[in-house]
Design a protein around this nucleic acid. Structure first.
Lengths: 204, 204
DNA sequence: GTCTATAAAGCGATAGAC
DNA sequence: GTCTATCGCTTTATAGAC
């Protein structure tokens, strides 16, 4: 966990969040991780290897955050908090819109990898897998919220919500959209989509 | 129009669409435009200057496409085609989802600049201006479609639609989402938002 | 305004000692 | 496994002729 490899990958996430994938310099990464450049080549062979492992590392970390949140959610529910399917979906979708250093760093790095995939086909497989898993999770929660909706419509709504998220995320991270505004737009989008899908809890 | 500066900027749009902002090499641009590297420095001072002017150039070009489309639209309307406010809005939003080299190139370059702005504050001013103008145009057409909707709700809906567009655009350009699927999601999103805003033409 | 030639710096990657 | 030192290619940017 705190071996050198992990330290280097943690540093890579930080550097990518700060300078972007194409702004990552091996020397910067070495300074960030407090090791020599040659140690990085020893562990990851070359720059492409660094990127591949960093991508997987960042993806895994996002999964862990998601899982931790789902756990916390179940806890809150057990404690009698206000946790209907609507709140569950909202929390899931708002996860990456938090101004915590960890979350912001992961969001930035992940968004960078997504943007970079337009020019680097090598990244697409990983992104596609993460993207479909994420869309399926959202679709599942939407289906809970709107049990009477046809599956095809739920899938499409989930695709729209996740794509909206990605668009808003870029705007937020580049300072074009305040965080609270972004969060409101997501909440409203859930309302709009759920209403169209015939949520029984609708009317707001 | 066909002076050297314009030729270089046209080449810059092509190179950025092919290799990304951070993949733009001055030597590549020189080859693309058929000039020497030093001529580029003569006209644009340094690499950042190239980027600044290329961004403005690409933005202007997108405006021209949009304006041309609006004109064509008015022509079709005069000719008695099926052009209600709904069709107008749809065409406006689907403009960048076309598999024509020009459009794809501009979309790719613009998306790249947007993504890059997360790491380069210098680009944000231009992006913010283009973004608000674009959102205002969409909001105007939405208001036409849903005359009874409160202005605040229309603005928010326009922000969601344009952000959705940007999210879908990245997915399309990176090959994660087929073009027709992206177009369908946009059309459905218009329907969902318009319905929520109380479009008189609703019910589909 | 435009070119050729080149300086200067940046950067990925390796060799070899410990 | 980890470091220091360095090689060699790439890339930005400038000098100076035309």
């Amino acid at each position: 966990m705190t071996d050198r490899r992990t330290e280097i990958l943690t540093g890579a996430a930080r550097v990518i969040a700060r300078q972007g994938v194409r702004g990552l310099r091996v020397a910067d990464l070495a300074a960030e991780a407090g090791v020599s450049t040659s140690l990085i080549y020893y562990h990851f062979k070359d720059r492409a290897g660094i990127l591949r492992h960093a991508l997987a590392f960042i993806g895994d970390r996002a999964d862990r955050y998601t899982a931790a949140e789902a756990e916390a959610e179940r806890g809150a529910e057990a404690a009698g908090g206000p946790s209907g399917p609507r709140q569950l979906l909202e929390r899931t979708l708002l996860l990456e819109f938090q101004d915590l250093p960890e979350v912001r760093e992961n969001s930035t790095a992940w968004g960078e990898l997504r943007a970079h995939s337009v020019f680097d086909p090598e990244l697409r497989e990983e992104l596609a897998a993460a993207g479909t898993a994420w869309a399926a999770e959202v679709a599942g929660r939407l289906a809970e919220l709107c049990p009477a909706a046809p599956p095809g419509a739920v899938t499409a709504a989930a695709e729209r919500l996740t794509a909206l998220l990605e668009g808003l995320s870029v705007r937020w991270l580049s300072g074009l959209l305040p965080l609270t505004h972004a969060r409101n737009l997501v909440r409203e989008a859930i309302g709009v989509e759920a209403s169209r899908l015939g949520s029984p809890l609708d009317v707001n």
